[in-house]
Structures are given as C-alpha cells and as structure tokens.
Design a protein around this nucleic acid. Structure first.
Lengths: 196, 196
DNA sequence: CCAATTTCATAATGGTCGTTATTAAACCAC
DNA sequence: GTGGTTTAATAACGACCATTATGAAATTGG
C-alpha cells in the first residue's frame, strides 16, 4: 500500500550512469543528476541511497550493460584472440557514444579529493578484477601451449589493461575510432607466439 | 618600494604542483593549497592569479622540471630507443614519488564538471603536443630508413602515448615499478624494424 | 470512505567551494 | 621619520555542494 513510484528505476540509473560516464564521480552534481534523470533529489536518495551508493550501482550496471564483451573474449580459443576482442571492443565502446566517450572505469575517477577516495578505490578494484580474469586466462593459455613457457602472463594482462586505459584517455580527448583501432593494431603486433 | 614578498614563489609553485599531481585539478581546494604551500589564499591569488592560472603555471613547471626526458629521448639515434627512453622514464616518474604517483597530465583531469572544461582541454593540448613531437620524430625515422616505409608513424606515436597514459593510471592505482617496467617491455617487444 | 502508508515537490540545512574586502604590518624614497 | 606603496592575515562574500525536513498528493487495506 501507499503511493506508487512514478519513475522507472532502471531508466533513472541509466541516466545517472551516462552523467557519471561523462563528468566522472567528483564532477557530477545532484543538479546534473536530477536534470538528466528528470527526477528530484529526494527520489534519488530514497531509491539508491547517497551519491556514492548511486555511483556504485551505476558501475554495476555499466558492467552488465556494456562490458559483456569481456566474458565473451575470455571464451575465445587463443590468447591473441582474447586480447584482440577486448581491445577492439574497448575502442568501439569508447567511441560509440559521442556524449560520453571513454570509459567509466577511467573517467569515474583517477585522482580526486580525499572524500572521493572510496570511489577511487572501488574503481581500482573494478579494474583489477578485469585484469585478474585476463591473467587467469593467459595462465590457461600458457598451460595449453598457446603462450610460450617464458611468457609473463601477469605483465601481459597488465599490458592489455594499460592499452585499454590509455585508449580510454585518448577517446575522452576526442581521438577518432580509426586512430584508436590503429593503436590497437600496434598493440597486438607485439603479441608473443608459441614458436618464438 | 613597498613591502617585500615573504615566500619563495617557486617553492610555493612546487607545493601547488604536488597537490594538483596527487588530487587533480577539481579535487584540489584552496584549503589544500594553502596548507601545502604555507601561504594564505590572497597571496596565492596575487602571485599566480586564480585556480586555473595557478594550475597552468604548475603544468608549465611540471614540463620543465619533470619531463626533460622527452627532448632527451627525441635526440636518440633510433625510434626504438626513443620509445624505450620515454616509456622507462615515464615509469620512473610515475613511481618515484610515493605521495604523488602517476602523471599530472592524466591525474590533472580526464573527466570533470563543465567548469573544469578549460583545464581539461589544456591537458588534452598538452598531451597532444608530446604526441606531435613523437610523430615528427618517427617521420624522420622513416625518412632515415630506421622505420619501414609501411609504418604508420601517427599510430605509433599514439601507441607510445597510450602506453604512458595507461601506465600512469596503473601507477596511480598503486602498481609497482617492476610491474610497470614489465608492461613497458611488452610494449617494446615487437617494435617495427626496417627489415620486416 | 477512512486511515495508514508511501512517494512526491519544495525548500531548507550546514558545510565547503573559489574569490575578495578589509585592515594591519613592512618596506622604500624622500 | 614620514608618506606612499606593497604584502600579510583575518574574515567575509555569494554560490554551490550533498543531504534531508516538511507537508501535500496518491494509493490500498479495512
């Protein structure tokens, strides 16, 4: 019983996600959020909690809605295909939406005031989780003989992640999709092979 | 005539630079700046102008004091040495100071509120200037036969910059110097050669 | 139809933001 | 040493920050 909610929670979360994506955590104000969502402040608080909780929910939704290419990539047969799938799909995601280029994992917060530290750390953990999955996958590739015994799988995973981070920065700076794809090409040209 | 300034302008600028380096432009408040510099607000305004002007001066000083390895790199004989010098020195710079890891060009601002847009753009230009120098140097390498005729020098320059950006993000996330050096190794592992 | 409950919009909270008046102190030329 | 000028420190400015108190509107169970 009681009055019904008049807005679609998921639509509002998507709107908030887009704002965070564009302006980062610290750069986003409730004025921005209410304008984008078409919903007043107290409604946001009652539906999602405070700003940090809202950001964390937006980050979860980002994972679900936009990063499905990562589990896809991990299932591919060779480590090179895994890396290629991730890099090219990252370029696509970073340049697909003209009003929020780059990546929430980077735009959200790289540096910031002390008050934003928990969010910054959450993003560090978020990125580390992706890197750990990649590391694990490359370990499997080594066991399967897809990667040479000498391969530093941890560094390889960190390298792919560094590329996605760097390209995200460049996408946010306005780099074209074509340019970033060429950058990804160059990154993949360094990929180790079993027979070298 | 008139009273003398009681603080060292360069020391105060260095202090401000360190704060911006750690917290970024938007994450830095005048409370932070005055505490770090040991100088009151009005003194900062009279010596440097407003927050944006102070940041721009800090960025200039950053260039002079910390990025001298870039002109050094450009003078090296081969494009591979140029890239290696930049990447390893970037790792060093990104991890040398425990209280401000990463790079001001990235930490300063990747995303932010609309008010920070001029600073964000200044950093984009700043990074683009470095990339242009690199591009030019790689063009020369191609003319000298150091790089193959087929090399995409613009993408190569963007690739090296993407690596520095990505490693800067990782350094700010706490990655070790050793890990980042291994990432740089991977990036350099298949630099294009004249004879391939 | 009434009472209980939930959401709504308005507007206020205390705090911090960047930026400056304001006034006292220190200096130099005369 | 006095007058003119520059800097220093205190404290204030309006604006915006995230958060919430308040009361009207809407809904359902009894």
């Amino acid at each position: 019983m009681g009055r019904h909610r008049e807005f679609d929670v998921e639509k509002v979360l998507d709107a908030a996600l887009c704002v965070f994506w564009r302006k980062g955590y610290e750069g986003t104000s409730y004025a921005d959020l209410t304008e984008a969502a078409g919903v007043e402040r107290p409604a946001l608080y009652s539906a999602f909690g405070n700003k940090e909780a809202l950001f964390r929910k937006a980050l979860d939704r980002y994972s679900e809605r936009y990063l499905d290419y990562i589990p896809e990539a991990l299932k591919l047969p060779t480590s090179r295909q895994v890396a290629a799938h991730i890099l090219y799909n990252a370029v696509d995601l970073n340049t697909r939406h003209p009003d929020h280029t780059g990546c929430l994992g980077i735009n959200g917060a790289v540096a910031g005031s002390d008050e934003t530290e928990p969010v910054r750390q959450a993003l560090i953990d978020f990125r580390a989780a992706g890197q750990a999955q990649l590391h694990e996958r490359f370990e499997r590739a080594k066991a399967e003989g897809d990667l040479p015994e000498t391969a530093n799988t941890e560094a390889l995973a960190a390298f792919v992640m560094a590329m996605t981070h760097g390209m995200a920065v460049q996408a946010k700076a306005g780099f074209s999709r074509d340019m970033l794809n060429a950058v990804a090409d160059q990154a993949l040209s360094t990929w180790p092979t079993k027979s070298s």
